[in-house]
Amino acid sequence: MAANPAPYQSAQADSAVSVSGLTAAYDGAPVLDNVSFELGAGQWHTVIGPNGSGKTTLLTILAGSLTPVRGDVKLFGGDPEACRRRSEVAYMPQHENLEWDFPISVWDTVMTGRYGHMRRDALWRRFLPARLSADRHREICARALAEVRMDHLARRPIGQLSGGQKKRVLLARMLTQEAPLVLLDEPLVGLDKDSRRLILDVLRRQRERGQTIVMVTHDLVNTMKYADQVLLLNRSVIDIGPPAEMLRDDMLTRTAAPNWLTQTPAADEEDA
């Protein structure tokens, strides 16, 4: 963990994510409406909003899987696709959005985080199967697994892990990418105290090394403790600012106010 301190200096720009006039829709129904905000590089940002308010949608746009109807996205001041191709964006999906039946081991899952870097390996090396790739990739993978304390389960099929273990594997995969920007969709849901601690500690260390963290969560207590900035989102940006201001009751009430999109009751605070 002490390995390479502050490797994320390469991200020169002050702003890691800059979004303006973003509108997104599924089948014509707008889910995000004219969203604009800016997230500073090297900071820990938390996105808070009720269920169905468009948080996952926002992250999938930043991760490149959903094309917005309108609006402009810049990552580190430049073209987001170019950033992604340089493996500068890591994404940890919300638990439900992955095929846990897939025949793949913990080790191989974590290794997929390196695939972007392997693509830039010299010549024929990029075509090699992951297990024959350069030692460097495997070392990073082993280190990430040790960091989330899952090394003893490396050979297990992912389908046979508990919910909390799966989350740690996804976190390890994210770490192997060594991306200056990480997007995490509700990484703390369904975890016990220790696992939550472990994930938050890992993220804090990453943050100290200069990584920009964008985390969706319903956990207000830990947001208060860890976040540098909070983005209140409900179809559009309600407000953005330091946690102490954003997490006041009146602000949260405004964020949770039902609109025609959010049929489900406002977000409870999980087990915070």
Binding site: R84, A90, T112, G116, M118, A130
Partner: peptide, 25 residues
């Protein structure tokens, strides 16, 4: 399949990650 094994694995397993890593899904 041999040459693009990694791409195929990634795309069948996790299309969102495929895009996040900048692969042309």
């Amino acid at each position: 399949v041999a040459l693009f094994y990694k791409e195929l694995l990634l795309y069948t397993f996790d299309p969102v990650q495929t895009r996040a890593l900048g692969f042309h899904s």
